[in-house]
Write a protein that binds this DNA or RNA. Structure first.
Length: 637
RNA sequence: GCUGGGGUAGCUCAAUCGGCAGAGCAGCUGACUUGUAAUCAGCAGGUUGUGGGUUCGAGUCCCAUCCCCAGCUCCA
C-alpha cells in the first residue's frame, strides 16, 4: 500500500506495484490523452514508472516546458531509430531537446542531403505509425558498456564511462532500437503526431573543435498538425522580417566584399541611427551623464596595462605607426580612464558618469558574422561611471532604471536579466570578485528582479548583469550589460580626494544600454518588420499628387512640412496613384498624402496611413500638428 | 576558424549531356494626365565573385582563393 497525493491535492491509497498510469486513470479521459509524462515528488518520470510508497503526482503535458522537452526528446529517439534503419553504419552521439525542438548528432561517413532528410522523415512516419512502446530498463554498468561496445556505439561507451558511479545506467527501447538515456520518455512512438526535420549541419562531438565533426539533424514536433503549421509560419515570418533582407530593400545599410563584417550605413539607415542617438543623448544628459569621445587607435602599452593584451588579444587588431606598436580599441574603458586621469578629482564630483558612443573593432571568427547582429566593428553606447564604494548600488539602480526606460517605456520590449560570474580567464583575487558579485545581486534583489545566473560568463575584469530583450517573435537578444570593476582602477592607480584630504580608490562601472547600436537597430528592424514608428522612420511622409496640375499645390505642402522638420518626399513621377501608393507602402512610409482636384480646391490633403488606411482629408496644418504630436509621444504605431 | 551549401544584369531568378548567356522587376526614353498596393511601348544593362587549369569549345568539369548562407565554437 502506498499513499498518493493527486494533482488536485486529494490523497488516495494505491496497492503495491501500482504505476503512474494507475493514477492517470483517475482523471477524465479527454485530459488523459494529453498527458505525456508525470512528475513524482518533483522528479519527471515515465507514465510506466512504479509509484514509491509516498508520492505526490503531477501530470506533464505539452503545455509544460518539461512536457515539451520529453516530447521532443522522444522525437529525437524516433529520428535516431529511422537513421539507424536507413544507415546501419551511423554511430549515435547525443540527441537532446532544445529550447525549440530537438536534434540528434550522428557520426556518418557522408553528410546528409535534403533528400536524405525526406527519406528519414518517411521512415520516422512508419515508426510512429507502428506505435512502438517505449520501454525503460536499468542495466549494470559493465553490461551496458559491453552492449554498446558490441554495437560499435563508441560515443555511447564514452558517455557511460563518464557517468558518475552512483548514477544508475538506464536504456530505452522502442522496437529494435536501443539508446542510452536517462529519460523520461513518451509511453509510445505513436504519441508524436506532427513533426518536421528542419536542417542538417555539422557539429563537433561535445562541442569541441578538436573533436570529430558529426552530422546534426534538427527537427521540431507537436501533438497537433496545426501547431506545426503555426510554427512553420513563424519561421517564414522571421525570414520575412530578417534585417539583412529589409536592410537592403529599405536601403538602410549594406555589406561589401571589401569589408566583411564592417557595415556601411546608407542615408536612410543613418536617419534611424541618428534619431536613436538623439533620444539616447537627451535621456543621458537628463540623468547626469557627460559625453566624451576617445580615439580608436591607442598605443599597445595601454592595452598591456589594462590587461586586454593578456586577456583579449585574439580579438584585437594591431598595427604599427612610426615604429611604435598600436592597437585598434576593442573596448572603450581605457580611453575613459585616460580622460579621468587627466586631472585630480574630488569626492564632490562623484559619481562621474562619462558616456561615449564608442566605435570598437573586434576580430570575430569569420563564421559567426551575421548582418548587423554580429559584426567586426560596432558602436557601443558605452558609459563609465567612477564612484565611491557606497554609491555603487545606487548607480546600478540608476542604470537599471535607464534600461527600463528604453526597453519597456520607449519600445515596449519585455526583457529579463541574467547575472554572469567570474570566468576562468580573468584578473584579480577572489575577494574582490565576491564583493563585486554580491553588489550586483543586491541591486537586482532590491529591484525585485528574478534573475538567472551564468557561472563563469563574466568579463575578465568583473562580473556583469546582462539584459536580454524579447522581440515580437519571442526571440531574446542580449543587449545591455552592467559590469562592476574594481580592477581597472587598481591597474591604472585611479584615485579621488576624499573628505579627509586623502587619496581613495574609486569603483568603476561599465555599462551599455542598447549594447551595440548596430545590433539594436537590427532588432528594431526585425521587431517592426521595417515599419518604423513615425519618429524613427527614414521617410515620414510622402506626398502623392495625382496629375501634373496638382504639382504646384503639392509643392506648397511639401515646403510647409519640410520647413517644420518632417522628413517628407514629393512623388511627382508620371504614374497612377495606385502605383505611387504601392511603392510608398512597400517602402513602409508611415503617411501618404494624396493630392487631387478635391484637395487643391478645398486646401486639404487626403491622409493615408500605411497600416490604418484612409484617414480622410484635413488641412496641411492639422496634419502637421497630428504628426508632431505622434513624434513627440514617441508613438509606436 | 571548422563542416556543409551557394555566388549569373542594381534586385529576384533561368540557362537540358560541356555547344549563340536569358526573363521579370528596377533604370532610361516616349505615349497616357491618372483618386488609395504594379498603364503601355521601346531602349539599355554581363570579363557568369576572382585567379589558374582541362577542352576545338567552360556559367557548366578540376584546383586555389574571396565573399555569402546554415550550423558548431565564441560574443555587444
Amino acid at each position: 500500500m502506498g499513499k498518493v497525493i493527486l494533482p488536485d491535492g486529494e490523497e488516495k491509497e494505491f496497492p503495491e506495484g501500482a504505476t503512474v498510469k494507475d493514477v492517470l486513470a483517475l482523471i477524465p479521459p479527454e485530459r488523459q490523452k494529453r498527458v505525456l509524462a508525470a512528475k513524482v515528488n518533483g522528479v519527471p518520470v515515465d507514465l510506466n514508472a512504479p509509484l514509491p510508497s509516498e508520492a505526490k503526482v503531477e501530470f506533464l503535458t505539452f503545455a509544460d516546458s518539461e512536457g515539451r522537452e520529453i516530447y521532443w526528446h522522444s522525437t529525437a529517439h524516433i529520428l535516431a531509430q529511422a537513421v539507424k534503419r536507413l544507415y546501419p553504419e551511423a554511430k549515435l552521439a547525443i540527441g537532446p531537446p532544445t529550447a525549440s525542438g530537438f536534434y540528434y548528432d550522428f557520426d556518418v561517413p557522408n553528410p546528409f542531403s535534403p533528400e536524405d532528410l525526406e527519406r528519414i522523415e518517411a521512415e520516422m512516419r512508419r515508426i510512429i505509425e507502428a506505435d512502438l512502446p517505449i520501454v525503460r530498463e536499468e542495466m549494470a554498468r559493465e553490461e551496458a558498456r559491453r552492449f554498446f561496445a558490441s554495437r560499435g556505439e563508441v560515443y555511447k561507451v564514452e558517455l557511460i564511462d563518464e557517468l558518475p558511479p552512483e548514477v544508475p545506467i538506464t536504456i530505452y527501447r522502442q522496437g529494435e532500437f536501443v539508446d542510452l538515456c536517462r529519460g523520461p520518455h513518451l509511453p509510445s512512438t505513436g504519441y508524436v503526431k506532427a513533426f518536421k526535420l528542419l536542417s542538417v549541419a555539422g557539429a563537433y562531438w561535445r562541442g569541441d573543435e578538436r573533436n570529430k565533426m558529426l552530422q546534426r539533424i534538427y527537427g521540431i514536433s507537436f501533438p497537433e498538425t496545426e501547431e506545426l503549421e503555426e510554427y512553420l509560419r513563424r519561421l517564414e515570418e522571421a525570414r520575412r522580417r530578417d534585417h539583412r533582407r529589409l536592410g537592403q530593400e529599405l536601403d538602410l545599410f549594406s555589406f561589401q566584399e571589401e569589408g566583411p563584417g564592417f557595415p556601411f550605413f546608407h542615408p536612410k539607415g543613418m536617419i534611424v541611427r541618428n534619431e536613436l542617438e538623439a533620444l539616447w543623448r537627451r535621456e543621458h544628459y537628463r540623468r547626469g551623464y557627460q559625453e566624451i569621445r576617445t580615439p580608436i587607435l591607442l598605443k599597445r602599452t595601454l592595452w598591456e596595462r589594462s590587461g586586454h593584451w593578456d586577456h583579449y588579444k585574439e580579438n584585437m587588431y594591431f598595427l604599427e605607426i612610426d615604429g611604435q606598436p598600436y592597437a585598434i580599441k576593442p573596448m572603450n574603458c581605457p580611453g575613459a580612464i585616460l580622460v579621468y586621469q587627466q586631472r585630480v578629482h574630488s569626492y564632490r564630483e562623484l559619481p562621474l558618469r562619462l558616456a561615449e558612443m564608442g566605435l570598437v573593432h573586434r576580430h570575430e571568427l569569420s563564421g559567426v558574422l551575421h548582418g548587423l547582429m554580429r559584426v567586426r566593428s560596432f558602436t557601443q553606447d558605452d558609459a563609465h561611471i567612477f564612484c565611491r564604494e557606497d554609491q555603487v548600488k545606487e548607480e546600478i539602480l540608476g542604470i537599471i532604471d535607464l534600461v527600463d526606460y528604453f526597453y519597456r517605456q520607449v519600445f515596449g520590449f519585455p526583457y529579463h536579466v541574467e547575472l554572469s560570474t567570474r570566468p576562468e580567464k580573468s584578473m584579480g583575487d577572489d575577494h574582490i570578485w565576491e564583493l563585486a558579485t554580491s553588489a550586483l545581486k543586491e541591486a537586482l534583489e532590491e529591484r525585485g528582479f528574478a534573475y538567472k545566473v551564468n557561472e563563469g560568463e563574466g568579463a575578465f575584469y568583473g562580473p556583469k548583469i546582462d539584459f536580454h530583450l524579447e522581440d515580437c517573435l519571442g526571440r531574446t537578444w542580449q543587449c545591455g550589460t552592467i559590469q562592476l570593476d574594481f580592477l581597472m582602477p587598481e591597474k591604472f592607480d585611479l584615485f579621488y580626494i576624499g573628505e579627509d584630504g586623502q587619496r581613495h580608490r574609486p569603483v568603476m562601472l561599465h555599462r551599455v544600454i542598447f549594447g551595440s547600436l548596430e545590433r539594436f537597430m537590427a532588432i528594431l528592424i526585425e521587431h517592426f518588420a521595417g515599419a518604423f514608428p513615425l519618429w524613427l522612420a527614414p521617410v515620414q511622409v510622402r506626398i502623392l499628387p495625382i496629375a501634373d496640375r496638382h504639382h504646384a499645390y503639392a509643392r506648397q505642402v511639401y515646403d510647409l512640412l519640410s520647413r517644420e522638420d518632417l522628413r517628407v518626399e514629393l512623388d511627382t513621377r508620371n504614374e497612377k496613384v495606385s502605383y505611387k501608393v504601392r511603392e510608398a507602402q512597400v517602402q513602409k512610409i508611415p503617411y501618404m498624402l494624396v493630392i487631387g482636384d478635391k484637395e487643391v480646391n478645398s486646401g486639404t490633403v487626403a491622409v493615408r496611413h500605411r497600416s490604418r488606411g484612409d484617414l480622410g482629408a484635413m488641412t496641411p496644418e492639422a496634419f502637421l500638428e497630428k504628426a508632431r504630436e505622434e513624434i513627440k509621444a514617441l508613438a509606436l504605431e
